[in-house]
Design a protein around this nucleic acid. Structure first.
Lengths: 152, 152
DNA sequence: TAAGATAAGTGGTTAACAGTGGGTTAAAAT
DNA sequence: ATTTTAACCCACTGTTAACCACTTATCTTA
């Protein structure tokens, strides 16, 4: 089964003293009624937080179950992604509380950058995102190859 | 699936104090009813903004969905292509609001040049376009390569 | 070709809504 | 029982988008 969501766009919001973050209305309105404003926040592979609408998370969980625990990489991956998964709902104003552990992990202070990435939403420390952006961590060649496969 | 649109022509319009830009009627009338006046504005590879009718964007989106986020290159590629994509509708007068980030990126001041380029529409700062035009940025060789693939 | 009619481009106003902050009560933990 | 935490409610403010109005251009028809 494939993804039902196609989040896009970038937003600059702020986190308040109670660790509340507002989900941009444009993204929030895309939540299907069957997800009832419920989603999962977890560690991203990069230094950010990932948000999956509940039904998306269920798809991923199913895929994760297929992974053999015999492989060390798989074990680490499963551990890192499942133990930090929190089931969350947003309040009447459209906000949710980002768990302290994820605030720490993504080194979020006052401002946050929120990015829609198809089936998930990413929460970033703006400064960190900028740094990752600028650093040439991706080797150019594989990027080129990719852009040839995907027809933009 | 291949493109349904063939935009052509060049137009000089203006952007107002609220970042509103009018889509030329000639281009607007080509929008298919199923796209319901909805489109995606995003960063062009050159220093301009790109507009894709929704159904065109969906073709791209479908390709992007094939990319797994386990690959680092994929993650960065996806982020960079999706974060600047804004889903937009035009108002009853046929205008749309160009997000500030794209106004900045394409250094648009007062006048804009709008160009139809097959399946997308490009929004340019006229002065910048002129400069790019005059400078022979395209090296002859890649033109040669292109001529072998495309039969003009 | 001129005049009226229709459509296109541009500008401003307003009312709804999104984002943010704080306070109060209920629940949980110590 | 007391302290801490989290959910809920209310309230303020700035932005946005829907609406209205005017001018200029284009098309049509006499």
């Amino acid at each position: 089964m494939s993804s039902q969501y196609t989040f896009t766009g970038e937003f600059t919001f702020s986190i308040d003293s109670k660790n509340r973050i507002n989900i941009p209305a444009t993204l929030r309105k895309q939540f299907l009624s069957r997800d009832k404003k419920t989603f999962v926040v977890t560690r991203g592979i990069d230094q950010c937080a990932w948000i999956y609408p509940m039904s998306e998370w269920e798809i991923i969980q199913k895929e994760l179950k297929e992974l053999s625990s015999l492989s060390k990489t798989n074990r680490i991956f499963l551990r890192n992604h499942l133990r930090h998964a929190n089931i969350i709902k947003f309040d009447n104003q459209g906000r949710f509380v980002l768990p302290q552990s994820l605030v720490d992990y993504s080194t979020i202070k006052k401002d946050v950058t929120i990015i829609g990435v198809l089936n998930k939403i990413e929460i970033w420390n703006p400064h960190l995102l900028k740094k990752v952006d600028q650093s040439d961590e991706v080797d150019e060649q594989s990027y080129e190859e990719l852009s040839e496969r995907v027809n933009i």
